[in-house]
Design a protein around this nucleic acid. Structure first.
Lengths: 321, 321
DNA sequence: TTGTAAGCGTTATCAA
DNA sequence: TTGATAACGCTTACAA
């Protein structure tokens, strides 16, 4: 910057003003400064600027699992929305580990992100409290924590789940295996509660950890126990369940029915195509980013609940007629 | 930091020394400082530290498309490797757009990442030159650019592709549709060249853009032109091709054979399972991160070529026997 | 072992 | 309109 100033025959203050689009500088000096910048290939140091202004124009996003396409899509939506407001997003991948999540959150805070978007690994509120205590704007995404006091953006799958339950019961299933998420996550608990609630005594629940392998194992146990229908509470566990079903040579829907929470582009391509509960991922990501930006700007955004939709395809058998 | 110093009855220099694990401070003063830090909930400002030390302990990663599971997996591997060396990764998603790619690269450089990992959207070397001119350590990942002078980490699919070609020819296919990547990407060109080369005059090539939609369109054209086998040069285009095949009610492999570059967890679950050329994504990501770290440490890492492997499944028909 | 003080590259206040 | 200059929060000679 000093070099630029020297080159243009002005002070660094003037260079700064040109850079920040202040009204002050003469068109003529602005021209000279711009020329010098160009000639020297000067690029401002964002670190120094942020140190001075206490604003990084950066949002932190800590997601549960980058390899889960659901979160990848969310991440992309957040990024799009943020960019359209001049913000950049730093993504941290917690890998469904509370410990790694905490590490990332602290790293991001240390780098002074202007706000934080968090998909909490567990419903333990301590990390959220820590962030709030630091006064950093925070929005929870997809999952919430116990007694959360910050805005939450998530999907509501209750209607879709009860509709799904109706279908399954209507189709005559009496042993319905539920591959649930971890009970210490809000989505894991809520989805399962709603489904088992509307299923009455017909549900059998096995908890997984939102990953493929746990889906296979849960499916194996449930099939062994005589389940004639499987509902996986997230797409990765659904993938695992599907693998187990295939490995046993069972036919969907003849031998066993299957439905999965979260849609994926390849679900319609299976034979039969898989019935899913689709979440509005893109809208969730965008809404969360907007809420966070509002919070940063001193507003108090409300919680947002978008509705997930039941998409009936062939994997339920006659129920989908 | 001043507060901590005051609280502990020392100077900020001492606080800094404790923070950075210097040998100097007495166990006793160290204790006092640590206590003060704890009590005040102090966290050092990474921005200020970086400004002073000119090191951010951060790697930039600009990938072509976050929604492509291939890149998501790479991103995760990079992150894992980086973290194990005390580095943090900032991910930028170029969305297969050269413009957005450039924007991200510059943003990351402005934030003074210690090094940059780039999966270039095109083989235009200008952006790479710009980075190199800035003296920032740079490693290219998955794809290269024309006349690249920096280390490149990628997969070599030649053997797998020629083996695939042999299978297809051996199975009697005479019109083989190749759904190629963009000709202005190194992977797009090279893979296609190898395959068409070993296919002789039997290949028909349609270029896509590494996305699902383009895969469907390319497949449609190739099928209309009488192709009896389809090879998609990336998993997203493969997904699109599969959709088109299904939409037309064609049976794999009876009516048409299919092979895809990049494996995905759900490919084995299709009926028939899809034959793929699998890239060692995790190793690519880790190797790239290691190369970059080496470069940052003043070494001169070599280019790395890992080999992609042909995984025969049912989608080729009798060829896989 | 500890403290003082300069400096990292910016921006913002205040005079000129 | 422009230029000195202090300050942002940290690290690091250099002195003590």
């Amino acid at each position: 910057m000093k070099d630029v100033a020297l080159h243009a025959g002005v002070s660094t203050a003037t260079v700064s003003r040109v850079l920040n689009g202040h009204a002050a500088p003469t068109p003529e000096t602005r021209e000279r400064v711009l020329a010098a910048i160009d000639e020297l290939g000067y690029r401002p140091n964002a670190l120094a600027r942020s140190l001075r202004t206490t604003s990084t124009q950066t949002l932190g996003l800590v997601i549960s699992d980058l390899l889960n396409p659901f979160f990848a899509e969310i991440a992309r939506a957040v990024e799009d929305e943020a960019r359209s407001h001049g913000y950049c997003v730093v993504i941290g991948n917690a890998d469904e580990s509370a410990e790694q999540e905490a590490t990332y959150v602290r790293t991001l805070l240390d780098r002074r992100v202007d706000g934080l978007l968090l998909c909490p690994a567990t419903d333990d509120p301590s990390l959220v409290r820590e962030v709030s205590a630091g006064g950093v704007p925070l929005v929870l995404l997809d999952r919430t924590v116990r007694g959360a006091t910050c805005p939450v953006v998530r999907a509501d799958g209750s209607e879709a789940l009860t509709a799904l339950a109706r279908r399954l019961v209507g189709a005559g299933h009496t042993r319905i295996g539920v591959i649930a998420g971890p009970p210490n996550t809000s989505t894991g608990r809520e989805r399962t509660d709603v489904l088992t609630g509307s299923l009455g005594g017909l549900a059998q629940v096995v908890h997984g950890d939102f990953r493929q392998e746990s889906g296979s194992q849960a499916a194996a146990r449930l099939i062994d126990d005589g389940a004639t229908a499987l509902v996986a509470m997230d797409n990765l566990m659904g993938l695992g369940a599907l693998g187990e079903v295939r490995a046993r040579g069972l036919q969907i829907p003849h031998d066993i029915a299957l439905a999965v929470f979260d849609d994926q582009p390849w679900f319609p391509l299976l034979d039969p195509p898989i019935t899913v509960i689709a979440q509005p991922t893109v809208e969730m990501g965008r809404a969360a980013a907007r809420s966070l930006l509002a919070l940063i700007n001193g507003q108090q955004p409300d919680d947002i609940r978008l509705t997930a939709k039941l998409v009936l395809r062939g994997s339920l058998g006659e129920a989908e007629l």
